[in-house]
């Protein structure tokens, strides 16, 4: 499991189509239905032949998408969220770092089925100190001052890079120094993005 940003499949044309036909149209529709939509609207899309169609909507930030997205924000996210609450989003611009990002989810062996918890995790500080890397916790807990596993999805190892291959390399280098008994992660996160760019 994991996620990355940007998604090369969303070309300029697809982006414009989604803004007009999906996002703005849906926000207007919700207002017309007496259900004004405030917050983050998440559209899960399927894109074929340059046209997007909606699979589902979520009423929140995605997980793990929030991790690679938020590390790319170049500004104050609190100001954006306050503008949403105060209904003055038209006054806001939001800048993004050009660097692409990727998040590799490190999970407990067995997830999404049954798995064990309480395993001591090592290497997080070392990984966090690597260039462009930020380790986000998911199913973790502090036990007597030590970080232990407490869920199926344990960590979201997130990295910014000069380009997508560089971000992938950084994220996996960080994953490789993080250890616990039963750690598991996919090695192919971001591979689809590279395939698309070729």
């Amino acid at each position: 499991m994991g996620a990355y940003s940007p998604a090369p499949v969303v070309t300029k044309e697809v982006f414009d189509q989604v803004m007009e036909e999906v996002m703005i149209r849906t926000v207007n529709a919700m207002a017309s239905e007496g259900r004004p939509y405030k917050g983050v609207l998440y559209a899960g899309l399927m894109i074929e032949d340059g046209k997007a169609r909606v699979l589902e909507f979520n009423a929140r930030y995605g997980d793990p998408e929030a991790q690679p997205l938020l590390v790319r924000v170049d500004g104050d996210i609190v100001e954006v969220m306050e503008a949403v609450v105060d209904e003055r989003l038209d006054e806001i611009t939001l800048n993004w770092h050009d660097s692409p990002s990727i998040c590799v989810v490190m999970a407990s062996e067995g997830y999404p089925g049954s798995y064990e918890t309480g395993k001591v995790i090592t290497g997080i500080e070392e990984a966090d100190a690597m260039e462009g890397v930020k380790v986000f916790h998911a199913g973790t807990a502090l036990k007597d001052g030590t970080i232990v596993t407490a869920g199926g999805r344990v960590l979201g190892v997130t990295a910014l890079g000069d380009d997508i291959p560089n971000a992938i390399e950084r994220a996996y280098r960080a994953c490789d120094v993080i250890k616990w008994d039963g750690a598991y992660y996919r090695r192919d996160i971001g591979a689809k993005a590279i395939k698309f760019l070729k």
């Binding site: 996002m23 998440y42 899960g44 989003l89």
Partner: peptide, 12 residues
Amino acid sequence: EEASFLAFSDGK
């Protein structure tokens, strides 16, 4: 191909 598209909205 799947992709996620997220946007902030203040209702308008």
